[in-house]
């Protein structure tokens, strides 16, 4: 029981990062049928912002908002320079474009900074723990979960109550019809990128304050997890992305504690096989956003 609850808290803590990223991935898929593998690069830019500012002893209170801002700015910039030009292209081209952007980002950091990791000191709070009854709980896990929940609630309110949210939902269902109602295509898409960037920036802050280093390729792995989470939940479904992210985070922790030592490294492989099986069983269910073509 002890480890069960402990694992659950750990898992939800990790999972909330995945879920925040996954919501962004899923939202972008909804509005433009793009699986954005460059989304993870937003974490990278946040990390370098943190490294840059902290090495000049800028306060965390300024550093964190700047890191989040960096992610938003990069997300919008990526849309403006690249995805806007291939908006109507095939899924094939969109996907490859996102991969090209990912490698481009890696190369830029390698050239601009270094291929070696840059370290920064993490704040004390990142690894503090407190005892709650029989459990030793990490403060940061609790903060992560609380912040993530606030973000999800905020996203839900945004989608229900604001015109921008309605535009995103409408555009995900029928983009042309939304344009006919006066929704500006450029605005809703770059808005979606900005919002996804904001969530990624927050996810980044939660993740990076504990990580303590920036390196060019660091965005790839968390993003892969986020994409898996979004796929589990059904691309385009934001609720699904949250559930998928949290489930993945928890599942990882449990896999680690159940699997014998030799198979530890195969955690991800198990997850992948599971996903592939899911695809085989109900491929259309996972991509239910794609509508049938009129013959």
């Amino acid at each position: 029981m002890n480890t069960f609850v402990q694992n659950l808290i750990d898992g939800l803590g990790n999972g909330s990062t995945y879920a925040l990223l996954a919501v962004g991935v899923s939202m972008l898929f909804g509005v433009m049928h793009l699986v954005n593998f460059a989304h993870g690069e937003l974490l990278t830019v946040s990390a370098y912002v943190i490294y840059g500012l902290r090495s000049k002893d800028v306060s965390w209170w300024i550093t964190v908002p700047m890191a989040i801002l960096g992610a938003v700015a990069l997300s919008v910039a990526i849309e403006f320079t690249a995805f806007r030009r291939v908006r109507t292209a095939s899924a094939f081209t969109l996907l490859l474009t996102s991969f090209a952007l990912e490698i481009l980002s890696h190369a830029v950091w390698r050239i601009g900074v270094s291929s070696k990791p840059r370290r920064y000191a993490t704040p004390e709070i990142a690894f503090k723990t407190f005892d709650l009854g029989p459990y030793r709980v990490e403060v940061w896990d609790v903060i992560s979960i609380v912040v993530a929940v606030l973000c999800f609630v905020g996203t839900a309110i945004m989608l229900r109550k604001t015109l921008f949210g309605l535009s995103i939902r409408a555009a995900s269902e029928d983009f042309d019809a939304a344009r006919l109602m006066g929704v500006k295509a450029n605005r809703v898409i770059s808005g979606a990128f900005a919002f996804a960037g904001l969530l990624a920036g927050i996810a980044g802050a939660l993740y990076l304050l504990r990580r303590g280093q920036a390196d060019p390729r660091m965005g790839a792995e968390p993003l892969l997890k986020a994409v898996i989470a979004a796929i589990i939940g059904g691309l385009g479904s934001l609720k699904g992305a949250v559930v998928g992210g949290l489930a993945l985070g928890v599942a990882e922790v449990y896999f680690r504690s159940f699997l014998p030592n030799d198979l530890q490294g195969l955690t991800d492989a198990f997850v992948f096989v599971l996903i592939a099986a899911l695809f085989v069983v109900r491929p259309q269910g996972l991509f239910n956003v794609q509508t049938a073509e009129r013959v």
């Binding site: 090209a100 952007l101 490698i103 890696h106 190369a107 390698r110 050239i111 291929s115």
Partner: peptide, 8 residues
Amino acid sequence: GLPDLFLA
């Protein structure tokens, strides 16, 4: 990283 930059 120049070759990667070229590739991307």
